[in-house]
Amino acid sequence: MRNTVIAIALSLACTQVMAAKLYKWVDENGVTQFSQQPPASQQYERMNVSAPPQLGSTPTPAHTPPETQAGTSSESGSTAAQQAEREQKELREAQCAKLREDLKTLENNPRLGRTNADGQMERIGEDERQAMMTRAREELASYCD
């Protein structure tokens, strides 16, 4: 039994380490690729991988764009400003997609729960759920539409 617990703990720790680095780039066919290894001959972007947000927390568009690292010079003649603008747009689109997904979850699941600071599961009340849906709709209207 003890060996099983140790094996599970180690596998969870390894999963966190492996998920720490993710690279994104566009190949010669225009297809976006993701990998744990950066490409050798193309410009790539290192993605910041973090734990999923807690239920009820919504992304705000005030986040800074992901760090871009140049592997080698790209053939595209885009300027740094255009690249930053494109990255900001992609980030906003991803945040809006996450916000829509959160709103859909809130609307379709009246019995939601979360883990409190003590590690105990607690149920989200209907009033709080409605407030969370209202806030998500307002943020969608402000930032995404």
Rank of each mutant, 00 (worst) to 15 (best):
S50R: 02
Q69I: 12
Q16S: 06
P66M: 00
E138A: 13
L99V: 03
P52L: 05
C14A: 11
P110Q: 02
M18I: 05
N108M: 12
R135M: 08
G71F: 01
P110N: 01
A80K: 15
C96W: 03
R92Y: 04
R114P: 09
I124L: 08
T58Q: 04
T58V: 02
Y23Q: 14
P52Q: 05
A20G: 05
D27M: 06
R129N: 01
Q69V: 12
E126G: 10
R100P: 00
A131P: 00
C96F: 01
P53H: 08
T60I: 04
P110A: 01
C96L: 03
K104G: 04
Y44H: 09
A141Y: 07
Q43N: 15
A40R: 14
V31P: 03
I8T: 09
V5A: 08
R86S: 09
P66G: 00
K98P: 00
G77D: 14
Q88S: 12
C96E: 03
S35Y: 09
E45V: 15
I124Y: 10
E75C: 13
F34A: 02
Q36N: 06
G125Q: 13
A7F: 12
T60N: 10
L91G: 02
A13G: 12
R2C: 00
R129H: 09
Q43Y: 15
K24W: 11
Q95S: 00
M121R: 05
T115C: 13
D102P: 09
D127N: 06
R111Y: 04
M132L: 08
A117V: 11
Y23K: 06
P59W: 07
T105I: 12
E138G: 03
R86H: 12
Q82P: 15
A117G: 10
N109S: 12
S78M: 08
T72G: 08
D127M: 01
T15E: 03
E122C: 05
Q33I: 14
C96D: 00
P110H: 03
A51Q: 10
K98C: 05
A141S: 11
Q130S: 12
H63Y: 08
R92H: 10
L91T: 04
